[in-house]
């Protein structure tokens, strides 16, 4: 047994996991919270990435906007993660063996890494100037990766 398998089996057997699996409305309600988190997260990602690619009013600096939207980004991501763990707990081992779920976790890891890199890069002094080619490439990558995370998420229920 891999440690991950043990972790997922444990999650499914926790009080919360058992309650989530038994409850009629638990899963749909948490799913709704997951989707509201998605709206907040998607909005901040779209705004920062599109600004980096040159869309949006020229007077707004991507680094300012990224810094100001960071709390909303982190809060939305936290809502998604907490609700996501609850959703997984309702069918933990099923998720563990689900190829779409595995793909989603791998893509999520990459998407968070690229978003973190973008925010870090925008925090350095002098980032107010025109975005570098590196930043523009990262913005495109971020849009594609987050899109794939969403698509893989939808696939979990289909495969």
């Amino acid at each position: 047994m891999s440690p991950l398998h043990t972790l997922f089996r444990w999650l499914g057997h926790t009080t919360i996991g058992v309650a989530m699996a038994r409850s009629t409305w638990g899963f749909p309600l948490i799913e709704m919270a997951h989707l509201i988190g998605l709206a907040g997260l998607g909005g901040t990602i779209l705004i920062v990435d599109l600004l980096l690619l040159g869309f949006g009013p020229g007077r707004l600096s991507p680094s300012h906007v990224a810094r100001e939207l960071r709390p909303l980004f982190v809060a939305s991501l936290t809502v998604m993660m907490v609700s996501g763990v609850l959703l997984v707990s309702a069918e933990a081992l099923k998720c563990y063996y689900n190829p779409a779920f595995r793909a989603k976790m791998a893509l999520l890891f990459l998407a968070i890494a690229i978003s973190y890199a973008i925010h870090r890069n925008l925090s350095r002094p002098g980032a107010d100037d025109r975005p570098t080619v590196w930043l523009k490439t990262a913005a495109i990558l971020s849009l594609i990766l987050w899109l794939c995370v969403g698509a893989a998420g939808r696939l979990i229920g289909l495969v």
Partner: peptide, 22 residues
């Protein structure tokens, strides 16, 4: 997501929660 997520940013600006400097 694109509609409600970006509208939420404006809503939070109107509430003085985010993007206060813009």
């Amino acid at each position: 997501t694109a509609l409600a997520g970006t509208a939420a940013v404006l809503d939070l600006r109107l509430l003085g929660v985010t993007m206060r400097r813009e």
